[in-house]
Design a protein around this nucleic acid. Structure first.
Length: 753
DNA sequence: GAGTTTGAAACT
DNA sequence: CAGTTTCAAACTC
């Protein structure tokens, strides 16, 4: 209201009032413009903020359609429909400022009618983009809406739903919305007015739709919805509540690779290279404060920014792949060095891969991202599934009651940052390590040579030293990790830079075409096992496995030459190694680590001693690595203990996470990101769960109990149980199922429904 | 820092 | 799929 925009809006309304049409409308609807406006704004702000990245707007699609299409291949068929439909609608919408004003008004009224809880919950659920989308549709709705005042929400809702194409449309919306969430931020001031009005209207529609469709689609369990609502309701200031919830969501999203699709959009003008900011730093509290101070302002121009920022943070952490845009240039300038290549959902399909440079100053998360991205990519294979994951994550975070709530609260951005940092450190996975320097690392940007870095700086991101591969082959650690080479790299003729993005992407595609999992984490870690690992020194063998297995002949799998060893995982049946003495688990099934279980003196005694040395060298960093284990907490409590207890014995040379981050692995693996969360919150759990289903078969091999590998492999015996999910008594699947149950709301959103 | 070893990646 | 070559990290001195 205070904002100029609002003022503008009101003005038009006054003018309209004079018009016969307006009068007619008024006669029809008791709604009063003024009041509605205020309310509308409130909602607007809320809705705006609330808009989850999850959903995209048609506009976005129009703008970036190409990218979206690529990435969102997985998206449901329905989606395309939307996009097409939206595109048409959008055209219509454009230039409809006046209508928009009315819409705005109407929407405000509608909002009033809405149940705050519902709207809020809805809004939170909704992606920002959706507003746009709805806005697009609104024009039509508007006309109708005018006709029937009472219809208000209901009418619009119906209209919307119709335009959308049906209840199912919600799902697609969500997908698109996620994509386009960034759009809002990008919107130009000129268009802002329209957009806002549209947004409001959209919100109304959205809310109404949700309310109507909620039963059908979104929330499988009322609990989820309620829980979500509670978040908002709890906070005295809806805005604040929203922010909080929003942040949480973002966190979740961050963890969730799938949100990546949006990242691109985030880029926008608003996203300046310099700005790249890290959401991590963004303090939810601050956001809230700002919102409180000037909600309207916050909501409007700032709101978009805030949202975009949040998204950005999320995205960046998660993986921004393509947004290179303006940033890239800056990066290229050499300002920053580190850039991260992240693969989006598309990665599921090799072709879609995209790289995004990240600023050096960027988040610590960067390092993580690459891995995550990759992992995600792998996971992404099932686009649908990916969605589920997202949703699940979201819902889970939201849904959790009491303890859960606490958990969520914890997962503030800061926490996330921390967790990310930890993860990153932890995760020096094969892939990730080198990939991106942490923020801290960035400071180190000093041209230390890689070796130095490796030796002295365990955590430091790896840097390559390629001379002939041009950093466009998997030989290059940076490239393999999905990150751009940075200044510290000693590579020659490097093409793995933002400047050569096209080349990099093309090369990646080529490699992926050859081997879709080429950029997937080499080490797959079953999240399930993690929990157990903690207590026990290292059960890694079981918990994690190298994707393809090693082929060591002379190193006896006791040196970093061995990828299994390097990844801190035991050798498995997949390995063709000779004379395996892998401390983390021998191919033959004997895991030195497992000694506890099966004390094979040979392995341990002899190996251990030697190993210990090695480990010590490699080491240290392992502290973080240990975390990985911690990361896998099955129970919420575990979250609190990020640090794992690695047995004094062996710390894996590198982070286990590699894999998964699992949840992505993170979920592991790359997913890790999610897993990433040091505390590993639900998110991780979810991720973990997800992985089984979503992880590519290859990845699964090791993990899934079903996989022949596991069963066959000696290690698998031990491992398999844990792997199965959390190793909890519940049994592998059961654990997962449980999670899913908790998550229900999101799944419902998925196209399935 | 130079040279060697090693095994993955790439190629045939 | 197997064998060979290429490559860069890991390692040694």
């Amino acid at each position: 209201m205070d904002t100029p925009e609002k003022t503008q809006i009101t003005t038009p309304l006054s003018k309209f009032e004079d018009s016969p049409v307006f009068n007619y409308i008024n006669s029809l609807s008791p709604i009063k413009p003024v009041k509605s406006i205020n309310i509308a704004q409130t909602f607007h702000s809320l809705s705006f903020a609330s808009l989850p990245s999850v959903f995209t707007s048609p506009h976005v699609s129009s703008h970036k359609e190409t990218r979206f299409l690529k990435r969102h291949n997985y998206s449901d068929l329905s989606k395309p429909e939307f996009s097409s439909g939206n595109g048409n609608e959008v055209c219509k919408d454009e230039g409809v400022v006046v209508d928009a004003a009315q819409l705005y008004h109407n929407s405000a009224e509608l909002q009033e009618n809405f149940d705050p809880g519902m709207s809020i919950g809805e809004s939170s659920v909704e992606p920002p983009s959706e507003h746009l989308k709805f806005a697009i549709e609104l024009p039509q709705t508007l006309t109708y809406g005018c006709g029937s005042p009472d219809s208000g929400c209901g009418t619009q809702t119906d209209m919307v739903s119709e335009s959308a194409g049906k209840s199912l449309s919600l799902v697609p919306f969500a997908n698109e919305a996620s994509r386009k969430s960034s759009l809002e931020g990008q919107v130009h001031p000129a268009g802002l007015y329209e957009i806002e009005s549209k947004k409001e209207a959209t919100e109304c529609d959205w809310e109404s739709l949700i309310s109507d469709a909620a039963d059908l689609l979104i929330f499988n369990s009322p609990i989820d919805a309620d829980g979500f609502k509670e978040l908002f309701q709890k906070s005295p200031n809806p805005v604040v509540g929203f922010c909080t919830s929003f942040n949480e969501m973002h966190k979740t999203q961050i963890v969730n690779p799938f949100g990546s699709g949006e990242q691109n959009e985030m880029g926008d003008p608003s996203t300046q290279p310099g700005e790249t900011i890290e959401l991590t730093q963004m303090d939810p509290t601050q956001d809230n404060l700002s919102a409180n101070e000037d909600p309207n302002k916050y909501m409007t121009s700032n709101a978009s920014k805030a949202v975009s920022n949040l998204h950005r943070g999320m995205r960046r952490r998660c993986l921004d792949f393509e947004k290179v845009g303006s940033r890239r240039k800056n990066l290229d300038d050499g300002s920053s060095s580190s850039s991260v290549l992240v693969q989006l959902d598309e990665k599921t399909t090799p072709k879609n891969t995209q790289l995004v440079p990240v600023k050096p100053g960027g988040d610590s998360s960067r390092c993580i991202l690459p891995g995550i991205g990759l992992h995600l990519n792998a996971l992404a294979i099932n686009s649908k599934d990916s969605r589920k994951i997202k949703l699940e994550t979201f819902s889970s975070s939201i849904t959790l009651p009491g303890s859960a709530a606490s958990f969520n609260s914890r997962t503030t951005d800061q926490e996330l940052d921390e967790s990310l940092t930890l993860v990153s450190s932890e995760r020096d996975n094969d892939l990730n390590e080198n990939a991106v320097p942490l923020v801290e690392d960035l400071s180190q940007t000093s041209p230390k040579k890689k070796r130095r870095r490796l030796e002295g700086e365990p955590e430091a991101c790896k840097r390559c030293n390629c001379k002939k591969s041009k950093c466009l082959k998997l030989y290059c650690e940076c490239f393999a990790a999905g990150v751009y080479c940075i200044e510290p790299c000693a590579c020659q003729d490097c093409f793995n830079k933002p400047i050569h993005e096209d080349t990099v992407l093309a090369t990646r595609k080529q490699i992926e075409s050859r081997n879709p999992l080429a950029f997937a984490p080499k080490v797959i870690r079953s999240s399930e096992s993690a929990p157990e690992i903690r207590d026990e020194s290292i059960q890694t063998p079981a918990s994690a496995r190298h994707k393809r297995g090693c082929n060591c002949k002379k190193s006896t799998c006791l040196k970093k030459y061995c990828e299994c060893y390097q990844g801190g995982v035991g050798c498995s049946i997949n390995c063709r190694c000779e004379g395996c003495k892998n401390v983390f688990g021998r191919k033959d099934g004997a895991a030195s680590m497992e000694m506890e279980d099966e004390p094979e003196d040979e392995t341990e005694a002899s190996v251990k001693n030697g190993v210990d040395k090695i480990l010590q060298k490699t080491e240290i960093q392992n502290n973080d690595e240990q975390n990985p284990n911690s990361a896998l907490p099955t129970t919420p409590l575990r979250f609190y203990r990020p640090q794992v207890q690695f047995s004094s014995k062996g710390k894996p040379p590198r982070s286990f996470l590699g894999v998964g981050s699992s949840c992505g692995l993170y979920t592991g693996q790359r997913n890790g990101k999610p897993n990433i969360l040091r505390p590993q919150s639900k998110f991780e759990k979810q991720c973990q769960n997800v992985p089984d289903d979503e992880i590519p078969e290859i990845l699964r091999e090791n993990h899934s109990p079903s996989s022949g590998i596991k069963t066959s492999s000696p290690n698998s015996k031990r491992v398999s149980p844990p792997q199965n999910n959390f190793g909890s008594s519940s049994g592998p699947r059961s654990g997962r199922k449980l999670i899913l149950q908790s998550i229900p709301s999101f799944p419902s959103l998925t196209p399935h429904h």
